[in-house]
Write a protein that binds this DNA or RNA. Structure first.
Length: 287
DNA sequence: TGACGACAATGTGACTGATC
DNA sequence: GATCAGTCACATTGTCGTCA
């Protein structure tokens, strides 16, 4: 038999690797989140076998679709992290409506520790949301490239461009209500003035009705800031939001990971008590 | 159209090496 | 010894082209 295989549905080989549909989804996911560990890829359901994951990911690295780096998870332990490679940029742009310039920047970027840890944190928060076992049910988890929003406003006759770039947007169902939660992952290394500017951007996003236009809703969103720092950081940050016109609430990553989104672990500037995300649910019509 | 063979992808388990 | 990451061998499965 002269077996010259026809091009499979997986598409043509690139750099010696025949990309499967799963490969393309893995590349898209890594492009979406910036960096993902092998364990996270497995937890997201891309692989059910460690060896299979290793072998397939190694092929993608050899084909320059991905790059591999390491983050210390303990004194003598490393976690393998995958980021977008130069060949993966084209695949990610081809399969998704990602900004090619932004993707090329990702593909070239040197994987600095802080950059990696931030992105891994956002994926970890997504996994917590997926595992959620309370009354909250995750409907969508929209990563940064998909929820970033460039819009224009007119201020004193001048057109000003604004960019809203949350870490993620999680949409939960709670009973008959929907809860839109912008996720911000904080590692405690951003200055308070920078954080104040971040909260101000969310206020403007609501006040300038850009959010309402983008998502065709009048139901206000909540900003949930998850920090790897401790209670003092939460107190400092919540003081910045005392007069905020949008709902901003805080918790630690440790609390979130152990108790989940639905637990009474959220602290706002309005109260000393920890409460749930939906208590009270934002009133319809505006904050 | 169905059988067959080639090829690629997959999962499992065993193994190695590094570290605590 | 326990744990973790990575690799390898092997059997299985799925896809696809060829041919009767």
């Amino acid at each position: 038999m002269s077996a010259s295989r026809k091009p499979s549905k997986c598409g043509p080989r690139k750099s010696g690797v025949r990309l499967t549909s799963r490969d393309r989804r893995v590349i898209g996911e890594i492009a979406r989140y910036g960096a993902i560990s092998r364990g996270q890829l497995m937890e997201l359901g891309f692989f059910s076998s460690v060896s299979r994951a290793n072998r397939r990911l190694r092929l993608l690295v050899e084909g320059k679709f991905l790059r591999r780096t390491f983050v210390a998870t303990g004194p003598q332990q490393n976690s393998t992290i995958y980021v977008l490679g130069p060949a993966g940029v084209d695949v990610a742009v081809e399969d998704n409506s990602f900004d090619p310039i932004e993707m090329k920047r990702h593909g070239r970027r040197s994987p600095e520790r802080m950059y990696l840890e931030h992105h891994l944190g956002v994926v970890s928060i997504r996994l917590v949301a997926i595992r959620e076992s309370s009354d909250l049910r995750l409907l969508r988890y929209i990563a940064e490239p998909d929820c970033r929003h460039e819009y224009e406003v007119v201020v004193r006759g001048r057109v000003i461009k604004r960019l809203m770039k949350p870490d993620a947007l999680a949409v939960f169902a709670h009973g008959d209500s929907m809860l839109s939660v912008y996720i911000e992952f904080d590692r405690g290394n951003t200055s308070l003035p920078q954080m104040a500017a971040l909260f101000a951007r969310y206020e403007a996003y609501w006040a300038e009705t850009a959010y309402q236009s983008a998502y065709e809703t009048d139901i206000p969103f909540t900003v949930a800031l998850v920090t790897t720092a401790g209670r003092r950081r939460i107190d400092n940050l919540s003081r910045l939001t005392r007069r905020a016109a949008v709902s901003v609430t805080f918790t630690t990553f440790a609390q979130l990971e152990s108790k989940g989104f639905g637990a009474a672990i959220w602290k706002s500037a309005k109260t000393e008590e920890f409460s749930t995300l939906w208590d009270p649910l934002p009133e319809g019509g505006g904050p």
